[in-house]
Design a protein around this nucleic acid. Structure first.
Length: 826
RNA sequence: GCCGGAGUGGCGGAACUGGCAGACGCACCAGACUCAAAAUCUGGCGGGCCUUACAGCCCGUGGGGGUUCGACUCCCCCCUCCGGCACCA
């Protein structure tokens, strides 16, 4: 019986991919809505910056997400799989400055191009939920969140040291400075003083830290990076009175047990007391000079490894509250104002930095901790910073460090000059940016009323169009129509805040907006969030481990406290994929080794590219680009196609393959099929796309010789049919096409994920390995039901094995059911 | 310095709870097809030794030790590479 479904001999990926992309779009296959009768699954990938072209990193990220989304959809889940655009940011603005193109047009044009490319990859997004962060209906809600933060005291403005990127002409948050350089353009970050808006992320420091334990579905690496970033350390605060002053110095220490060895006190150059003492006729000039010098030194230089310890004496003395000893107060370059209290007690005998400082300025070193066993050879060559036993420490002498810390903190508490304290490295999030292409901060400055938040009903504060974008200063300040406004409280003249928000604000909550993207009355819809959240799988690059991924967690906690959501963490499982590299290094324009995805799509098709990028390496590892590998995947698709072509006229019309005559070859093939279904399913569940694809290749390799022999066409059809389903998450276009040839009338995502029959998957004949003293000496095959004692008997009577047993005594026989027999002889 | 991850053929990698190391792909070699080439198909492919052959033996998962009948897998020490934090008190 011939069933001549028209099928091209050649695998024409251009025609096939176009056909199915149009089909999916026409049928709106991937639009979803809340459906309480179905289990939901939220697959989220980090939204791209619309730079103008997809790169291989995007292809990897979104192909991984798409395979998962398609897999879950076939398993019957209601899958939310959206994409949007992180559309505010510097490149648009820089393009405007260089080429005079308005940022909005540049951005929207780029989005158009990239959306087309995304569709050409065959990614199954619900495009009805697309969001674009630079549009007022989105950034309006950034402003709304700002106002809520302001109301709750989580947004505040202060003047202080900030990270300044000269190239970007704007301030950066601490998270955005990587090794003293700008995260975006790698240029050196300077310190300067500016008035800025901050968000009080530190208020959530402890919770952000504690909840890391709940993120079992996150990579250990990301959790430890966030833990390091939050940088909690527990210690003691102790107040040192100052001789002849009202004010006291608060110091923070993690080693209060060493306090009897504190021979001087150190202040950060920015400490308020230093500013007070600069007028001192004797020591003032030196202090001023020193503080000024520190001010202009960028942080990278000041905190460089093994930097020289520098300091000046203030002329003042502090009183150690434990020993009542009078010790000199110095200012030192290595004491940081932004950590702890900006002041430390220096214990040169037990802290290497203090030791070096004492040596340089000939300050006394006093040992107060000794190793519990052994002696400390004096004079010290280097600080002894281990825990030990206290000596020369008044009533605390003889205690161990651990015990003394507790006792001494309690003592300080009783006497009222100290208390246990916790310090965090995490700083508040500076969100002001001195650039144009971002969300305007909804604040007015009124000469009478002061700082006035814009009323919610007046949102959005629309970013004005302007052709005057220049570098230097906040561009919005040059747009009078924007700046000059009326204070809604007093009706008088007022000016607007001209800084814009950090674009990381946009990405801190966009994934909530996907659940109700066009909602006009609120930022998020509680019911929709309730249905879709938490995100079941988030996929993105590791570079956001302590940027976006910590801001996002912070935002969720704030939203919870606002009553918008009722959970603590937004993302259950996080996957960080590796980079796509080439010749051992990053793909970059400057290296001239960039491979453009659209060129690869043109040459080999999206399906082959999607297969390769998921096959070539485990997804968490870096992937070295290799076009010959891509060709290999292209060959694989062709092999599949050829087999379908060769057989498509030879099978019956019924899809269900009953009545198959089962010879041993057919049984073996059927077994392989069911084993493959099991493996691909398991591998997809545990994010091992590379081995899932390898398993499908193996199945095809087994199918080929079968078709050369006395093949059962209906079994061939069954195998091809199931294989098509297995491959459809990775290569959806060719899968749909083959599916249609095989008789599917609907898209494969409604075909259901194939299930396997454990009975059919089970091996009938198994190979048993025989070891003698742990070395493989022979093998035999046996029926699957072989018992352990049968295995043992067979092994001991094996011809090859016998020669190893002569003249020896069998001491022990170990059997592993269905696998191996190990004969231990002596 | 502290924390985390990795190290397996020529290359990318596989081996889920200790049980046949090298699946799958690339590259390479040989054969078939072809006038020829490409494409395709078939076979080979860690190193060494041995044999006419069938086969067999030894070594081998960064290095060294250990646990175990048995270790890529577990434990200890070390080396190298990658990432985070770091004059953080």
């Amino acid at each position: 019986m011939l069933r001549n479904h028209s099928m091209q001999e050649q695998y024409d990926f251009r025609a096939i991919e176009k056909k199915w992309q149009e089909h999916w779009e026409r049928e709106q296959r991937y639009s979803v809505s809340e459906d309480p009768s179905k289990r939901k699954f939220y697959v989220l990938e980090m939204l791209p910056y619309p730079s103008g072209a997809l790169h291989m990193g995007h292809v990897r990220n979104y192909s991984l997400g798409d395979s998962l989304a398609r897999f879950k959809r076939m398993q019957g889940y209601n899958v939310l799989h959206p994409l949007g655009w992180d559309a505010f940011g510097l490149p648009a603005e820089n393009a405007a400055i260089r080429h005079g193109v308005p940022p909005e047009r540049w951005t929207l044009d780029n989005i158009r191009i990239m959306k087309k490319q995304a569709k050409e990859m065959g990614w199954s997004y619900d495009w009805d939920r697309e969001i674009t962060t630079c549009l007022p209906d989105y950034y309006k809600w950034n402003q709304w969140f700002f106002l809520q933060m302001y109301k709750k005291g989580l947004a505040y403005r202060r003047s202080g040291q900030v990270n300044w990127c000269e190239k970007c002409q704007t301030v950066l948050a601490n998270e955005q400075v990587v090794n003293g350089r700008c995260w975006r353009d790698d240029s050196v970050v300077l310190q300067t003083e500016l008035e800025q808006w901050y968000w009080r992320i530190t208020q959530y420091a402890e919770e952000l830290l504690q909840d890391l334990d709940k993120l079992g579905g996150w990579p250990e690496k990301v959790r430890s990076m966030q833990q390091n970033w939050i940088g909690k350390s527990s210690g003691t605060r102790v107040r040192f009175e100052i001789e002849g002053e009202q004010e006291a110095i608060e110091i923070f220490t993690t080693r209060v047990d060493t306090i009897y060895g504190a021979t001087f006190v150190l202040l950060a150059p920015e400490h308020s007391l230093v500013r007070r003492w600069v007028d001192d006729p004797q020591h003032g000039p030196a202090l001023t000079k020193f503080a000024e010098a520190m001010k202009w030194q960028d942080r990278a230089a000041r905190t460089a490894e093994e930097g020289e310890k520098l300091g000046v004496f203030t002329g003042h003395f502090a009183i150690n509250p434990f020993s009542n000893e009078k010790v000199p107060i110095w200012v030192a370059n290595f004491v940081l104002m932004e950590y702890g209290t900006g002041a430390i007690m220096a214990v040169p005998a037990h802290d290497q930095r203090d030791f070096e400082f004492a040596r340089k300025y000939q300050l006394p070193v006093r040992v107060v901790i000794c190793p519990v066993s052994g002696e400390l050879s004096q004079p010290l060559e280097t600080a002894f910073s281990d825990y030990g036993q206290l000596v020369q420490s008044g009533p605390f002498s003889g205690l161990t460090s651990e015990f003394a810390q507790e006792k001494m903190a309690a003592f300080a508490g009783e006497r009222g000059f100290g208390s246990p304290a916790v310090s965090y490295r995490l700083k508040d999030w500076g969100i002001s940016r001195q650039r144009y292409w971002g969300t305007p901060i909804p604040i007015l400055y009124c000469p009478r009323c002061g700082t006035v938040p814009v009323r919610e009903k007046d949102l959005p504060v629309v970013l004005p169009k302007t052709d005057q974008i220049r570098l230097g200063g906040s561009p919005l300040a040059t747009v009078p129509e924007f700046v000059n406004t009326t204070c809604h409280q007093c009706g008088g003249n007022a000016t607007r805040e001209t800084d814009t928000m950090d674009t990381f604000v946009d990405s801190s909550w966009y994934f909530y907006r996907y659940t109700a993207p066009r909602l006009d009355a609120a930022a998020v819809d509680r019911a929709a969030v309730c249905y879709w959240f938490p995100v079941d799988q988030y996929i993105g690059g590791i570079e956001h481990a302590i940027l976006h991924l910590i801001y996002m967690r912070f935002f969720t906690k704030v939203m919870r406290d606002m009553g918008l959501v009722d959970f603590n963490e937004p993302v259950t499982n996080l996957f960080t994929q590796g980079m796509v590299i080439r010749e051992g290094g990053k793909m970059s324009k400057s290296r001239g080794n960039v491979v453009a995805p659209d060129e690869m799509v043109r040459a080999y098709g999206a399906d082959a590219l999607r297969l390769f990028i998921q096959f070539a390496a485990p997804p968490e590892r870096d992937l070295d680009w290799n076009e010959q590998g891509l060709e290999g995947c292209y060959r694989f698709v062709n092999r599949l196609w050829r087999l379908v072509y060769r057989f498509h006229g030879r099978w019956g019309t019924d899809v269900n393959a009953n009545g198959i005559r089962k010879g041993p070859e057919s049984r073996a093939l059927e077994r392989k099929l069911h084993q493959t279904i099991r493996k691909v399913t398991d591998d997809l569940e545990r994010f091992h796309q590379n081995t899932a694809i390898a398993a499908i290749m193996e199945l095809l390799n087994e199918l080929y010789p079968y078709t050369e022999g006395d093949a059962e066409p209906r079994l061939v059809k069954e195998v091809l049919g199931k294989m098509t389903l297995l491959i459809s998450p990775f290569a959806p276009h060719v899968a749909e096409e083959i599916g249609e040839i095989l008789g599917h009338t609907e898209s494969l995502d409604s075909a259901g994920w194939p299930s396997y029959d454990p009975e059919l998957a089970r091996e009938e004949e198994i190979e048993i390995v025989i070891q003698v003293n742990g070395k493989i000496r022979s093998k035999f095959s046996a029926p699957a039901g072989i018992t352990e004692s049968e295995m043992e008997t067979a092994a001991l009577s094996d011809e090859k094995v016998k020669s190893y047993l002569t003249d020896r005594r069998v001491q022990k026989v170990i059997t592993v059911p269905k696998k191996l027999v190990n004969i231990v002889v002596r």
